[in-house]
Simulated assay, not measured.
Amino acid sequence: MSALCCCCIQSSTDDETVPFSKSAPAPKQVKVLEKGKKLVVKNVNVKEYDDKFVEIAELYNNQVENYTAMKKCLFQLNEVNGTANLPGCMEKMKEKYSDYGIQAQLKGYNFSLVVKETENIPENLQESQELIKELSRATKVLIGSQTKLGGMVFSVSQIREEMVDRIKEVNVGYLDQIRLVENMEENVKNIDKAKLLSTEYEQEASEVLKEMADIAGATV
């Protein structure tokens, strides 16, 4: 019996003697933010920083919604008119609805499809007018909000080390510190990616605006 006990004791591993509270978990796999997907930020248990991350996420997610709306409008315009791109769509409408005095109009960052006043505007033409109105609204939001988002993300990146120190100061538990600092690092990586994607959204919106300006014979 004593030999058996001795054997059991010797089979214990060093890991079993390490207190749980001092065992650092393996690093988590960070899910990278994808284009067109909403940004979800994690809690770091410091209100000032949580508020910053939430504000950035809300602004970025609004961009995602408008980017999705912009792409949907472009797709539906081509579907309604049987075309492949915005210039082709406008040209097709001018040919098909030549009696309605169709014109593309640009004022600042706002553009619209102007149609001669009449009681019998074809349904497809009315739908195209509404789609271009929504397209204008979405592209304007994307162009106008990108700079603000970039500035917010930059301000957070400047206090990265400060955030780590503050999180550890507020949360004294070792495992809490590990988890919350990991949350902060994941948030920073994803908002950095959001900044890059935001630039892509703005570039695509600017291209739409440029195409409408060319169609309207204006400059932006």
Rank of each mutant, 00 (worst) to 15 (best):
E169L: 08
K140M: 08
K168G: 07
M163E: 03
I121W: 10
I143Y: 11
L197Q: 10
E202M: 13
D165K: 15
I167G: 02
Y174T: 05
T199S: 14
T147Y: 11
V208S: 03
R160W: 14
M163I: 12
E182V: 02
L175C: 09
N190H: 13
T118F: 06
S198V: 00
Q177I: 04
S136L: 04
L209E: 08
I143A: 08
I143P: 07
E130M: 06
L125S: 09
R166P: 05
A205F: 10
S198T: 07
Q177V: 06
I121Y: 10
N124S: 10
I143S: 09
D165A: 15
E204P: 13
I159D: 06
T147W: 00
A205H: 06
S128M: 08
A194P: 04
L149N: 07
Y201F: 15
K189G: 00
L149A: 03
M152T: 01
K193T: 09
A205T: 07
F154L: 01
E185Q: 10
I178R: 04
L196A: 15
V208R: 02
T147E: 14
L125K: 04
K133A: 11
R160L: 14
L196W: 12
S198I: 04
E127C: 03
Q158N: 10
V181M: 06
K195T: 08
M163K: 05
R160M: 08
Q203P: 00
E161L: 10
N187M: 06
I167C: 01
G144C: 11
I121P: 07
M152D: 03
G173E: 10
S136Q: 03
